[in-house]
Amino acid sequence: MCSLCGVLGGSGHWTDAAARPGIFTRNVDSPQRRRERAHRIACASRVLAYYGLTLSDWQASSFVLSTATGKTELVEDLGHLWAAAERLLGRPCDPLDPDLIVRLEGSGLHD
């Protein structure tokens, strides 16, 4: 997408809420939208913990990705998460790593 379209299109990302009742609730029910965002953060955090990373919300507009040693990066949306994780760690991070999936399934923390 060109820069102008990005500016005019707003900050919405496909990982954010969409206007479909029962699926996501963009600008309809603020408490529900916050719950959905918190749930997405919790799901991503389960995966990121495997790599020693944490994810937190930043003013409901971005995310803060952090290493155990305190390095942090502001992530605009979940679409930029894995690239940021790899930059912080200096190595590849595969959310579909078979060992990670086995660990998530064994912990009962998968959704």
Rank of each mutant, 00 (worst) to 15 (best):
M1E: 09
C2G: 15
C2N: 15
C2H: 13
S3E: 14
S3I: 14
L4R: 12
C5K: 06
V7E: 11
L8N: 08
L8E: 08
L8P: 00
G9K: 03
G10T: 04
G10I: 03
S11L: 11
S11Y: 12
H13N: 14
H13Y: 12
H13W: 13
T15E: 03
T15Q: 01
A18N: 01
A18R: 10
A18D: 04
A19W: 00
A19T: 03
G22F: 09
G22H: 05
I23D: 04
I23T: 00
F24H: 14
F24W: 05
R26L: 15
N27T: 09
V28S: 06
D29S: 12
S30D: 14
S30T: 12
S30I: 13
S30G: 01
P31R: 10
Q32G: 08
Q32F: 05
R34N: 07
E36R: 08
A38C: 02
A38S: 08
H39S: 12
R40I: 10
I41V: 14
C43R: 15
C43N: 06
C43A: 15
A44S: 11
A44F: 04
S45K: 12
S45E: 09
S45R: 15
R46M: 00
R46E: 06
L48N: 04
A49F: 02
Y50D: 03
Y50E: 03
Y50H: 14
Y50N: 01
Y51C: 09
G52R: 12
G52K: 14
L53F: 04
L53Y: 09
L53G: 04
T54Q: 14
T54W: 11
T54N: 14
L55P: 00
L55D: 01
S56Q: 15
D57T: 08
D57G: 04
D57S: 07
W58E: 10
W58Q: 06
Q59R: 15
A60L: 11
S61M: 10
S62F: 08
F63N: 02
V64H: 07
L65P: 02
L65M: 02
S66W: 06
S66G: 11
A68K: 12
T69C: 08
T69H: 06
K71N: 07
T72S: 07
T72L: 07
E73Y: 02
E73M: 15
V75G: 02
L78Y: 11
G79V: 05
L81G: 03
L81P: 02
W82S: 06
W82Y: 13
A83W: 04
E86I: 05
E86T: 11
R87P: 00
R87V: 08
G90C: 07
D94H: 04
P95V: 09
P95H: 05
L96G: 01
L96R: 08
D97L: 02
D97V: 01
P98K: 10
P98T: 13
P98I: 12
P98N: 11
P98D: 11
D99Y: 04
D99H: 10
L100F: 08
L100V: 05
L100R: 05
L100T: 01
L100I: 07
V102R: 13
R103K: 13
R103F: 00
L104P: 00
G106V: 11
S107R: 13
L109C: 06
H110Q: 05
